[in-house]
């Protein structure tokens, strides 16, 4: 069985048919060729497959593509060239927050979902917000440092809400 959906994916309208049992991650990677979304644990634990749906982080490994009807989806590819990407990308590089890079798209997208939220401008809140995104290289310190660097800054707020 299949469903016709209309969704905005990285700013472009997608209208077409998807199989009812197709997972969002397979739709993005296999149908649309958006390979920046990483497949890893496949059970909603590691966070690698995170994308934003209507601004909220979801595990694309356990989300049905047919549920996208009327939704706005952002993947890491959609951030390229935006102010947010520039600000956060710069901070990640400065702090060495990337090693193998496998978790990075998900880290960046998760951060985007709350980086303009002033309530999270302290490290404890930030840790709570980022919990559930696993990184096996950096030990998290560098990632937290990069995020702390841009958290609450006006530049991040601007970059987070606009694009």
């Amino acid at each position: 069985m299949s469903t016709v959906i209309t969704a905005t994916i990285n700013g472009r309208t997608f209208k077409g048919e998807v199989e009812d049992n197709e997972l969002l991650i397979d739709f993005l990677r296999d149908d649309l060729g958006l390979n920046g979304t990483r497949q890893s644990c496949e059970v909603e634990v590691c966070g690698s497959c995170t994308v934003l749906v209507d601004g909220l982080p979801v595990s694309s490994c356990c989300y049905l593509a047919c549920d996208l009807d009327g939704k706005v989806v952002e993947t890491i590819e959609g951030l390229v060239g935006t102010a947010f990407h520039e600000v956060l990308g710069d901070a990640f590089v400065r702090h060495g927050a990337v090693q193998c890079g496998y978790c990075t798209p998900a880290m960046v997208l998760t951060a985007k979902s709350f980086l303009d939220d002033e309530r999270l401008a302290d490290e404890e809140s930030l840790k709570r917000a980022m919990r559930g995104n696993l990184c096996r290289c950096t030990g998290y310190r560098a990632i937290l440092d990069a995020l702390m660097d841009v958290m609450g800054s006006e530049r991040a707020a601007e970059a987070g809400s606009g694009r």
Partner: peptide, 12 residues
């Protein structure tokens, strides 16, 4: 509720 599972599970 803020500590249930992880942020992605709580979204949906």
């Amino acid at each position: 509720l803020a500590e249930v599972a992880n942020v992605r599970v709580r979204s949906v």
